[in-house]
Amino acid sequence: MNIFRFAGDMTHLCSIIVLLLKIQATKSCAGLSLRTQELYAIVFVSRYLDLFFTFISMYNVIMKLIFISSSFCIIWYMRCHRIVAQTYDREQDTFRVAFLVVPCFMLSLMINHEFSFTEVLWTFSIYLEAVAILPQLVLLQRTFNIDTLTSNYIFLLGAYRALYMLNWIYRYFTERDYSQWIVWTSGTLQTATYCDFFYYYILSWRKNERLSLPS
């Protein structure tokens, strides 16, 4: 495992920790999309089904378990926690996730390495992860409500994607026969989506800044 891959995993982990800390400290999930969080839970569950079939390393097992359990923990807070659930922007968070899930599933049936149950689900998770941030992006555009911790969460997610791309470049030049076109294509698209996210973040931040100026 190279330094980019490890740093990418750590920033991904940090993004989740920041999100959970924000929810616990402020007892609020305002500005967060439950739909994006649910898509991430689907991504993790369908990708990490291989926990039952293949063992890669203890590191992989532990990280997979952390990602699955933390995503369900976030969903539990947003749906079920007595105080936090009341702060969820239900009326604004209306993105139709079927428009993402169905095309991703169709695509994974058509473009995959092998037409088997686990392989199709794994491919589906790769495609879905690339677009899972979209409901969050739409919510952000609608509410213009973004606090420091939410922006840190987005920054860390973007950094995780950028580090994974560096990891692919590194592996391509250092390992023989290392090539994974499905992951590279979706991953590049996903990172591009984060650029968009940052653009809207700066836009809303500027807007808030102007609005808060004393008249």
Partner: peptide, 10 residues
């Protein structure tokens, strides 16, 4: 479809 799949990434 013949390319090996790398599943050691998260």
């Amino acid at each position: 479809a013949s390319e090996p799949t790398v599943k050691d990434e998260l």
